[in-house]
Design a protein around this nucleic acid. Structure first.
Length: 344
DNA sequence: AATACGGGGTT
DNA sequence: AACCCAGTATT
């Protein structure tokens, strides 16, 4: 593993420099026109990196455009209400990213200037090794290599690294030193983006376009014709879970549940209520059965039509009546909004 | 070291 | 429908 690079053609300095130049030239002429690349700024880079974490470019674009219009800079974001911030994130998923971004903006808005080193950035909420390297390389020209899922895929293919990793984040940790060694120190931000762009539009997980790849001559698996074998990630165990949720209507309102401050990560996101079996008159008929997967857990959620007992303490279950006309003003997770639209 | 956190892509 | 994929925080 450690001598993976020294045995490879990219172990030599000259080849490494040619590789970097070929990649950068390709990036200069083939990079996608993306909203955060127009009139780019530190703020736009931070927002886009938060949004792009675990999320594809095509999904992010409309959210990014809307976000920049609504919160054009750190100060406007910092002074926004949490509900407003979550609302702008609705449907994007991983809502703690939005809360962390909000916290971060409140912190940096008090600063006179920004730190330029990755370590300082990584101490901010929601910023780990990947975003810290991305921001400081792109915005401050720091020689910090990013190592995200794209980079893991591209590098394991170039190196034909067949080591099995327990999961993606283990692979990232192991490959980061190699990524760092390959980094172009003149244009670290562009080089980092180039490698990720290559992973996104050429070196696909399935059916990579090796014939159009600008660095195929350096790619061991590409030349062998077996790039899809890499990276080798261990399979994960799955589990199943059944959940009962309840559809309770009254006075032009729907009963929804919103976890309170500090209870869990779904703070501020409404859902159809669950865990209230003791507070309903009878279970009622099943309106729908929905399936979705969160992480390694496959959920089967049955939605029962029912009504509430007289004595139910809504507060105890963090429940609220939401008038139909106010449904669009609150934040629901993507699936819950879809389910409610279907069933109402 | 393992798990929680959502959503979406491809076949 | 079944499979796969993505960073950070927390435990």
């Amino acid at each position: 593993m450690n001598n993976l690079l020294t045995k490879h053609i990219l172990g030599g300095l000259e080849n490494r420099e040619k590789f970097q130049i070929d990649l950068l030239e390709w990036f200069d002429s083939h990079q996608r026109d993306l909203p955060w690349r127009n009139n780019s700024s530190l703020y736009k880079t931070v927002i886009s990196e938060f949004m792009l974490q675990q999320t594809r470019v095509t999904t992010v674009i409309p959210y990014f455009e809307n976000w920049i219009e609504k919160f054009p800079d750190f100060k406007s974001l910092a002074s926004a209400k949490e509900e407003e911030v979550l609302k702008a994130w609705e449907g994007l998923g991983y809502y703690s990213r939005a809360r962390n971004l909000h916290k971060l903006s409140k912190i940096v808005s008090t600063w006179d200037s920004f730190p330029t080193d990755a370590k300082s950035w990584q101490s901010l909420p929601g910023i780990g090794p990947y975003i810290a390297a991305a921001i400081t390389s792109i915005s401050f020209n720091q020689t910090e290599a990013v190592c995200d899922g794209n980079v893991v895929r591209v590098l394991t293919r170039i190196l034909a690294c067949g080591e099995q990793f327990k999961d993606g984040s283990v692979a990232q940790k192991k490959l980061r030193p190699h990524a760092q060694k390959l980094l172009n120190i003149q244009r670290p931000g562009d080089y980092n983006q180039a490698l990720m762009e290559l992973g996104a539009i050429v070196c696909h997980r399935q059916s990579p376009s090796c014939t159009t790849c600008p660095v195929q001559v350096y790619c061991t698996s590409g030349k062998q014709g077996d790039p899809e074998r890499f990276p080798v990630l261990a399979k994960k165990k799955k589990s199943f879970q059944k959940i009962k949720r309840f559809w309770i209507e009254s006075n032009d309102s729907l009963l929804l549940q919103k976890p309170k401050e500090g209870e869990n990560k779904l703070v501020g996101i409404y859902e159809l209520p669950k865990g209230i079996e003791l507070e309903i008159s009878k279970k009622g008929k099943i309106l729908a059965v929905k399936k979705r997967t969160i992480g390694q857990v496959e959920f089967e959620e049955s939605i029962y039509l029912t009504s509430l007992t007289q004595e139910c303490d809504l507060n105890r279950y963090n429940m609220e009546w939401i008038k139909w006309e106010n449904l669009n003003n609150i934040t629901l997770s993507g699936p819950h909004r879809k389910w409610i639209e279907e069933l109402k």
